[in-house]
Design a protein around this nucleic acid. Structure first.
Lengths: 116, 116
DNA sequence: TATAGTGTGTAGTACATTATACACACAATG
DNA sequence: CATTGTGTGTATAATGTACTACACACTATA
């Protein structure tokens, strides 16, 4: 599914329970022109900037990284982490490319629990 | 050190052993205007595109990911890997942010050796 | 039925990115 | 000493990114 379709789906779903989720009102709360959001939702315009996607994710209760991914963008803070140790993280990510979800989850947990 | 300085250093070093590494000749082999490479090396222009950096890294025998990092860019193929499973990789990277190099290396080796 | 709210069409803008083209002065080489 | 090669200055451009402004027709509400 495209970025715009997803935003529209989520917003329309929220709207059923709360009239505050009209395109116009969401646009204003997020800080963009309603016409702009309209075009984004219909995929007439490409997804907006990272900043706007961030506000949109907060507003709609969606995962920021997932929305960014649907927009083909990678969060700036994650990029920063990688760019500080490029060789290490390049290896890590390329190694994890083929790994099953389970394996990645296990690594995350192990590192979080301090097993290193 | 800035991107341009590094490129100039590496190129000038190579040049001492081989006259083929003049700015002009490298530029031509890489496929850009010499004047452009000149500006890049003096940081008059920002670093070039990922594509040009790729060719430059091959030409100068430098690590592609490191050069890209110096340019503030993240390799497109790495982005792809992350964007396919954004939640998983976002967690992984944020978890690894504070981890010492050793820990990351260990994980890379363990996964490579199939210990999962 | 006036008014307020809704989504959208058309048009235009500001800025960044990623370069090219050409001319020039200087150095090296045959 | 003419030619070839060198790095650089100035000017320009094509494309992409990320929007705004405004008018319009339709719908719901009071």
């Amino acid at each position: 599914m495209r970025f715009g379709d997803h935003i529209r789906n989520v917003r329309e779903t929220l709207r059923k329970g709360d009239k505050k989720y009209s395109l116009r009102q969401v646009a204003i709360r997020v800080g963009v022109e309603p016409a702009y959001l309209s075009k984004i939702e219909r995929n007439v315009f490409p997804p907006p900037s990272e900043e706007v996607i961030g506000k949109l994710s907060a507003e709609l209760g969606e995962d920021r990284d997932v929305l960014l991914a649907m927009a083909g963008k990678l969060s700036g803070d994650l990029q920063q982490v990688i760019l500080e140790r490029p060789r290490l993280f390049a290896d890590l990510i390329r190694q994890m490319k083929e790994a099953p979800d389970q394996a990645i989850l296990r690594v995350v947990r192990e590192v979080r629990d301090g097993n290193w």
